[in-house]
């Protein structure tokens, strides 16, 4: 791909420190790029650092007690060292974010119409009437029936699915170049999730918006993203194009994850093969590989040295003992 890079994140790390406690490195050594119009997925379980990565890029982490290192170059500017004022110009108009919980991200005492117009008028000099028209148009585009009436309603009057659509409408109101969606459908039912993912897919394709999709659901990623980064314990452990990642996972964690999720299209009687232990059974990356305590493929080296994210075959991988070809890993595990 020789498309133009829109955002390139290099060596991002986030450390939270509190007085009297050891600092916690929530994210470290995270590097990835996203081209214009590209859709990138970040998968991981709770605590893997996927949301913190997004918050750091948007400058949404609290300043006190947080150390953010590395760089995130967005169109030749570094998002991480930018002043609050510069950031405010970019956020909302160029880079927008959709959060998981629509109830807590909407203001409960302000009408939907005001909340969408606010974003539009913050970034464009338009009359309130014009902003209201655009708001109605946005609601219509995300598939909300009767948009004019909805503009006058408050968040509590809407169902979960409609609220999430409103959030997407707000995020896309200023036609951003990059949309970061953090678990946008996790709180919703499957049939509503299908509607929203479908609309989101069409909207980003129509407008050529780049997308960073953060989720724990491998299914959501499989249909939506060109490239996928798998995170474990704060670091990217495997990055690959989606076909390669899903058909020939190389990191034992990715492989384990794919085998442990119950699927609709696998034989029913086949027992699931879970990853042993839990995400809390981990060792610091400085002592070796954080996945070592749960890894069926661990070798001595995994406890002695820290693996680095390096090119391996057709992808980037952080592992000393990767899974082998298709046949092999079926027998192995």
């Amino acid at each position: 791909m020789n498309e133009k890079q829109l955002l390139s994140v290099d060596g991002l790390s986030v450390t939270f420190s509190r007085r009297g406690r050891d600092p916690v490195e929530a994210v470290s050594e995270v590097s990835f790029t996203i081209a214009e119009g590209e859709h990138v997925g970040i998968v991981g379980e709770s605590g893997s650092g996927k949301s913190v990565t997004a918050m750091a890029l948007m400058g949404l982490l609290p300043e006190r007690g947080t150390t953010v290192e590395g760089s995130a170059t967005y169109r030749e500017q570094d998002l991480l060292s930018m002043s609050r004022r510069q950031l405010n110009q970019i956020r909302g108009s160029e880079i927008a974010m959709v959060f998981q919980d629509p109830m807590s991200s909407l203001n409960p005492v302000v009408t939907i119409g005001t909340q969408i117009s606010e974003v539009i008028r913050r970034h464009h000099r338009v009359s309130s009437k014009e902003a209201a028209n655009r708001s109605a148009e946005m609601l219509d585009r995300v598939g909300i029936p009767d948009p004019r009436r909805r503009l006058r309603e408050y968040p509590h009057q809407l169902s979960g699915g409609i609220r999430q659509r409103v959030l997407i409408a707000i995020a896309l109101a200023c036609e951003p170049r990059l949309l970061i969606a953090d678990e946008p459908t996790t709180a919703l039912d499957v049939t509503i999730q299908a509607q929203i993912l479908n609309e989101l897919k069409e909207l980003v394709a129509d407008t050529g918006t780049s997308l960073i999709m953060i989720t724990h659901d491998l299914g959501v990623i499989a249909g939506l993203c060109d490239r996928v980064h798998v995170m474990y314990s704060g670091r990217i452990v495997e990055s690959a194009r989606r076909y390669q990642l899903f058909t020939t996972p190389r990191h034992p964690y990715t492989g384990g994850l794919l085998q442990s999720v119950p699927r609709l299209d696998s034989p029913q009687d086949e027992p699931l093969r879970p990853i042993e232990g839990s995400p809390t059974d981990t060792i610091p990356w400085t002592d070796g590989c954080a996945f070592q305590p749960r890894c069926p493929h661990a070798i001595d080296q995994c406890l002695e040295a820290t693996p680095h994210l390096e090119p391996y075959e057709d992808r980037m991988l952080r592992c000393f003992n990767p899974l082998k070809g298709d046949e092999d890993d079926k027998r192995d595990r």
Binding site: P145, V190, T191, Q193, D217, G219, G223, Y243, F246, R263
Partner: peptide
Amino acid sequence: KALLSAVPLPDPKAEDERKPMLLSGEL
């Protein structure tokens, strides 16, 4: 039928072919 077709599968090939039967409206 709608419920089953709405579940995303962790398999890009199946995902590209999957045609979810979208329901209109909400519960």
